[in-house]
Design a protein around this nucleic acid. Sequence first.
DNA 1: GAGTTTGAAACT
DNA 2: CAGTTTCAAACTC
Length: 684
Amino acid sequence: MDNAEKKKIETPTPKSKFEDSPVFNFINNLSPIEAVRSTSTVQTFNSLSFTSPPPVFTSPHASFHRESRFFRCHNSVERSKALESLHGSVSKGEVGASGEVDLNKEATLEQEDETSCELPLILKSDSQASGHVDSPGTGDIVTEMLLDPSGNAPQGLDNASSSSSEDVSVGLRKILDAQEENDTPGADAAELLVFRSPNDSEAFGCLVDKISSSERRFCAGVKLTKQHDITKDVPANANEPLAVVPNQSVLSLHRGSMRRRCLDFEVLGKRKKDIADDHQQTVGDNKAESSSKCVVPGIGLHLNAIAMASRGIKINTIHEDSASLEIQKNFPGSVTPVQSQDIMPETLDQAESEPGGGLAVEEETPKPLVFEELNQDSLQKKKRKVEEPGEGESCKRCNCKKSKCLKLYCECFAAGVYCIEPCSCVDCFNRPIHEDTVLATRKQIESRNPLAFAPKVIRNSDSIMETTDDASKTPASARHKRGCNCKKSNCLKKYCECFQSGVGCSINCRCEGCKNAFGKKDGYLLAIMGSKQEEDLSKIQQKPDLSKDVEQNPSSDQPSTPLPPYRHMVVHQPFLSKNRLPPTQFFLGAGSSSFRKPDGDLTHARNEKKPLETVTEEDKTEVMPEILSNTPITTIKAISPNSKRVSPPHIGSSESGSILGKRTNGRKLILRSIPSFPSLNPNQ
DNA sequence: GAGTTTGAAACT
DNA sequence: CAGTTTCAAACTC
């Protein structure tokens, strides 16, 4: 059935024969839904087919898809099993099998050819889909599904599923074949499909699903070996990284996550095996291995990586703002997963691709696509430069003596990354070799505290800038999840987690004598109080639709509106959804710097942004963030004349719990995540 | 680099 | 939940 159909489809059949051919039957079988599917598919292809990875397009999409995909991976052991089984079947298919396999293989090969070039993984898949008109429709569907599981894919699948489940398996086989075939891009693609998600997921991770994000981080395992292989394959000469650079860069952009050194608990299957192999080979020289990992500057998937990345970025951005410089220095940055994405991929790729790889701070951020600029030599030098002195900074390293790096005391472990060579830990168990142990320990810890591995800092987009221009410059939106408990440091040293994260203290803090430069607890409280009052007033004065207000806010919002900075970021990263979540990233990236920017800049940014985004989107984003954010804005009065946006919820009560608002809290979260996704497509 | 301080994490 | 201990980072010298 499938074969016949596929062949028919592939080979241009005279229309006259259609009636007789299976194709005809196939067509007949097509339901109205099918038509819809094709339509959607077409759209997808069109957009995707445009090889040049429009940052805008890719990132949103990618992140979007990845997220869902990742979840799958994560949630289901089945998946790994399925993959394994499929994997196993691959060989079988090659040997024996049906035409399907052959076809698939061919397709795969073609894909490789096409994709092996410079196209980002995403594009690879895309190209596959779009490029192969003749390829089995099912295959396309599968691809589509994989690429965008959350998006249109499901529909396509449904339709496809009607044809048969085999199709799906075929599609998977394709991927697997590619992978098998090896380190080549194809393999990469396979991995990408699976692993890219973590990255992006992080991006989304923000407020909506912290927990999940934390897990994702952990899951975002990366097989360095593979990566290296990829690198080699791309250029004819492996020894000449230079040639590779461009390609890698491109690739890296889209699959930065892969390169991260992370704990991968999810997919233990093949990758795990590989890792184990690697380790066995280098058991004695764990260091060597780790070093390789270490090479990756941003390695740490998680907070660490982010922080590092953000640092680089920040430094650049920060310089602009002299005032903020000091603080910036002290604060590596924020910890937002999202941000990492932008930065990390490149950094990682570069670093990895290059033997000496270090962290090219300057290049990474600002100009993601400019790989050519990076001269390998210079790059290496830079990296080394950065690495050496900053090693401590660029890479998280622990110094654990007794915890075996299996407790949250260990920064690496807490960040969800494996310890690497540079770590000075003793009896470290936080190594890929002990993956099982690590996993078990992690679970144990999570059982105690589900949020143990969640980001410590929650950044809300909206509130970000709510602070006024004020000196306090408190990143209103960003707050430490649990708050600090400082007694003697006055929240002015890195002992204080709030301070360390570059965020102000909040109600959650139990600190004494808080003088947090990013925002005092008192200020926070006052802000809340003030906001509440304002809100009340506003409510009284304007009882119109809340929804209306919310929507209006974005556009009409006062300078006080936090959005601006946020939007500003958006420009670079066109995710609508990100707007909210990303705030974090934004926040971080610009991190502290962002909020420090002069109002003028902010305003400007706002203005610029507005045009870019649809009002709707903003509205959505706007509303949500507010709700979510506890943001205490120090100068609420000045800020929110309208007081529309002013967080009604916050006002709810002086206490954090109440602040969020009973009703709003849970509900808001949901709204946020859901609406944003759909919106993305339309914009694109 | 060693020693001290600090506060989070872990334990009771 | 509170008190205590353990731990490693941050800090100081």
